[in-house]
Amino acid sequence: MKHDSEAALHFTDEAAARISEWRRHLINLADGKLSGIPERSFLGREMRAAAVVATMAELEALLREMMIAIGAHVNSTSILTKDLTPSLRTLAANSRFESMRYSSDHEAIWNGRLEVTGLDASLERVNLPGKTRSSPQPPLDGRTIQVRHIAIVWRVLGLTDPIPRASVVTALKKLTQIRNDVAHRNVDIAQVFSEAGRTAREIAGYLDEVVLLVLHIGVEWSEYLEQERFRVNRPARPGA
């Protein structure tokens, strides 16, 4: 159990280190320390684009891995569904919700509703979703990570304070806009990086905020497992 919480910190530390490495290159770009690569050159724009896309991919991978790891950990405890926190039961019932979503069988839909409303008394062993390959990892939707994605993950886990400070929200909005403009080529890449707030130094500042967010996620993830926050009645901690 302790190993799982330590692995969470290790995973997030590595993600933070990779984002910090991109930040370092952006600062060097802004300071003119990359020989032959001016910030406004083709390579200068491509480097800014790569840093943004890589950072958002790190954040998506982190949240996905977090949900997979928490699911595997909770399943390994053989906890009963009734002993899960109410919010996490929604994830335990994910397959039921999905089957009702696409079913045209009136009886099956109502049987599913009855099952879901009885989860607080269910003696079934929990089976949270494992790693998905053909669809987004629940409760994510496969879109570029925004504050709302982190917020819903926190709500499902029954946690509070998904964002460590307000400036993280601004940074995520900026990065999401840039990432989508670059990935979908909504406008020419030269125009993408001619807009305000998109210099190498400014993007490096946004990456600073994401590093803070990543480390925050790591601490919450680790403590969630170590303190067994998924249980309705958590065991008393030594010395408490």
Rank of each mutant, 00 (worst) to 15 (best):
T176R: 03
L88C: 01
G130L: 04
G71W: 04
A236R: 13
L215V: 14
A50V: 13
I150G: 01
T170N: 13
K131I: 12
I19W: 07
S122E: 09
R148H: 15
R45I: 13
G158W: 01
E14L: 11
L88Y: 01
G158I: 00
F11L: 12
S134I: 09
L119K: 03
T77S: 08
S104T: 09
M47Y: 01
K82N: 13
I217G: 02
G142M: 09
T117N: 14
T77K: 00
M47K: 06
D120V: 12
L91Y: 00
A151G: 07
L80S: 14
H184K: 07
E14A: 14
W154Y: 11
L123A: 01
L159E: 08
N75C: 10
A190D: 15
A190T: 15
G205H: 02
D188S: 13
Y102Q: 09
A108L: 04
Q137A: 02
S20N: 02
P164D: 10
P129K: 02
V232M: 04
L128H: 07
T199A: 09
M56A: 07
L59H: 11
S99N: 08
N233W: 05
K131E: 14
G112I: 05
P162H: 02
S95I: 06
A17P: 03
G218H: 00
N233H: 12
R133T: 14
T12R: 08
L213K: 11
A190P: 09
R23D: 05
I79A: 07
R64W: 14
V169Q: 12
D188I: 11
K33M: 13
D4T: 15
W154N: 14
L128P: 01
A51V: 05
K82D: 04
A183E: 00
A200H: 09
S76K: 13
G112E: 02
P129R: 06
T199S: 15
G118Y: 01
R231N: 00
I70K: 04
E195G: 13
